[in-house]
């Protein structure tokens, strides 16, 4: 969407940079102005505008932190899953199997309530517990996306890199990973957008994010239509902005000009 704004003669990286900057500025603008914008709305939105804005900020923050953790974790798990060491493969497979086979809500509740019982002294505050659970969850899904990417890089690429005398680290970082990441990017984006929405489940352990705010206001004011519509539209705005950023990243990696 944003990508189409730029003049035809701009290069790929110029367009990509412009989109990235525009989307990030837009996101900052939306978040900082959301409170003021909503304050012009009729009751019960107007008087609670600041709460909505704070909730949206918490949602985005929660998503960014657990998304970053999930990317690192997913890369690690994908590497472990394709490792030559059998025990590493088993550990990664177990992690992916356990996370994908259980509901996210259970995982969030588990980290918040059960983990302190299992590990005495580990008392995570609600936000941190949500980050851990969401990060672990999206990490498992990312692992499979990245593994698919790693497997899709032709064997000849690794062989050519090794034949040049490059060490394992350079073969991976310079040749395999960039190509694998490009292939994994669309499913990673889906995972990230899903994470943004799934972060709403953190409301179960009392994190005051967007959904929690909406739910509190609708039960206090008995106006579910207005409040929940506001919540839904705010999510839509956030996901739209996030996909603009990721499209820009995808466009940058697409040196073959396949993306339209």
């Amino acid at each position: 969407m944003l990508l189409a704004l730029w003049p035809d003669h701009w290069s790929r990286s110029q367009r990509s940079n412009a989109t990235l900057v525009a989307a990030l500025v837009l996101m900052a603008l939306v978040l900082s102005l959301l409170g003021q914008l909503l304050s012009f709305f009729p009751e019960p939105i107007g008087s609670n505008a600041a709460l909505f804005a704070d909730g949206a900020l918490t949602t985005l923050y929660l998503t960014l932190v657990s998304g970053a953790a999930g990317l690192v974790l997913g890369t690690g798990a994908a590497l472990a899953r394709t490792s030559r060491l059998a025990w590493l493969r088993y550990v990664a497979s177990f992690y992916i199997w356990a996370i994908r086979g259980t509901p996210l809500l259970v995982q969030i509740l588990f980290v918040y309530f059960a983990l302190p019982v299992l590990v005495p002294g580990l008392n995570l505050p609600d936000f941190a517990a949500a980050v851990v659970a969401l990060g672990l969850n999206v990490g498992a899904y990312n692992a499979e996306a990245i593994r698919a990417g790693l497997l899709a890089v032709p064997r000849g690429q690794t062989e050519a890199a090794r034949a040049l005398g490059l060490g394992h680290g350079h073969v991976f970082l310079d040749v395999v990973f960039p190509q694998a990441f490009k292939i994994a990017l669309p499913p990673l984006v889906s995972n990230f957008v899903a994470l943004l929405k799934d972060s709403s489940l953190a409301y179960a352990i009392g994190v005051v994010e967007l959904t929690n705010v909406g739910n509190r206001i609708q039960s206090a004011t008995f106006q579910p239509v207005a409040t929940l519509t506001t919540v839904a539209i705010t999510y839509l705005i956030l996901t739209t902005l996030v996909t603009q950023v990721t499209h820009a990243v995808e466009y940058r990696f697409d040196v073959e000009g396949r993306a339209k």
Binding site: P154, G156, Q157, E159, A160, A161, R162, A163, L164, G165, L166, G167, D174, V175, P178, Q179, K182, F253, V255, E256
Partner: peptide
Amino acid sequence: QKQRSEVGMVFQQFNLFGHMSVLDNVTLA
């Protein structure tokens, strides 16, 4: 790795790095 850098290899399927420009392909090693 030292031996490999002294032994150049050319493959049937070229195996150029698809995500790099021609220049970067040559300068990487």
